[in-house]
Design a binder for these strands. Sequence first.
DNA 1: CCGCAATCGTCCTCCTCGGACGGTACGGCT
DNA 2: AGCCGTACCGTCCGAGGAGGACGATTGCGG
Lengths: 188, 188
Amino acid sequence: MPAVRLSPTSYVVLGMIALRGPSTPYDLKRAVGHSVGYFWHFPHAQLYSEPERLTAAGLLTCETETEGRRRKTYSITPAGTEALQSWIAEPSDSHFQIRDPAELKLFFNEVGAPDDVARLAKGQIERHEERIALYESMVARFGPEPADNPRLITLELGLEVEYATLRFWRALAAGDLAGLRRRRGESA
Amino acid sequence: MPAVRLSPTSYVVLGMIALRGPSTPYDLKRAVGHSVGYFWHFPHAQLYSEPERLTAAGLLTCETETEGRRRKTYSITPAGTEALQSWIAEPSDSHFQIRDPAELKLFFNEVGAPDDVARLAKGQIERHEERIALYESMVARFGPEPADNPRLITLELGLEVEYATLRFWRALAAGDLAGLRRRRGESA
DNA sequence: CCGCAATCGTCCTCCTCGGACGGTACGGCT
DNA sequence: AGCCGTACCGTCCGAGGAGGACGATTGCGG
């Protein structure tokens, strides 16, 4: 039972199994896909290999189906629960990262054509509006007071960020970044 | 001159050299460190190895210093400039990702102790306030109308997101996510 | 009963990550 | 001048992440 370095991926696997009970990697894939995976993509292959690591470390146990599709069901062990809980309890180690290719393009736009920024902004506005509509419709399915549903809190944060980003690109397209700053100052 | 897959890291390297002129990896490290690197971390080892790849692909040229410190200065080629420009011009391929360990902890908080959320929120509020103060002080150094300085636009987007995230954690700590939703609806 | 599409699992290759380590330059002290 | 500490700079390496290719299984419609 060797010790391993636990990454965010590890905790996603542990967390999902802790929340949902024994799961197959495919279960994890789907569960991640419509929750934390909205803003932080975890490639599906990881959700097959990571449980193996965690099993080797004694944080999960594995039950293999013999007939038909070779399917493995993982369950969390007391050690796994403890590792997850102490990670949740410990003070946060690192700041968030925002990985936005569009932001890179914007930063280097001087190298490109003059109207690239306008087209980029237009595309980003559409993209974020679509996302917002999607997320809002999902939130709406949960009724009038969804804000405290634990499964939705994460979506709430995502929406807040989506709106912020949308405001930015709109201000950029309108040439009114100064106005953005002003409104930000007021709301704070 | 084999073709290579160009990643965001590749474009950061190309872009920095295009903006700043011939650079050493260490120059890149510093330039990235106080610009795009604020929100998207690029490990320094990449900024040494990536230029080699790009040189092999014909997008950069390399000049090696002979005396003293072994130092390599990279310059961009016409092919490199073109690759960068066409990337900037092409419609954005993928949505942004937000990688926030705190968000994961929040999502899985049911597994933890009851007061974990409160402590998490408290820590996040402090963290984001610090960041905001830091970025604001940097922006302030550029004078009263900084918003359109191209080097700062990226910081502007980052600040918008920082404030959004701060509002979220504050609302969470105050138990008033519904209020957050309401205010968001008004401002949109 | 067959074929086809959706579902599910594995593999492979290249890239990312981040820390360890070692070399180089420079200023201060004796 | 020579030594030493420290900041600066470059390389390496092992583990993990990314994501596409591919193969197997299942169930459904003909």
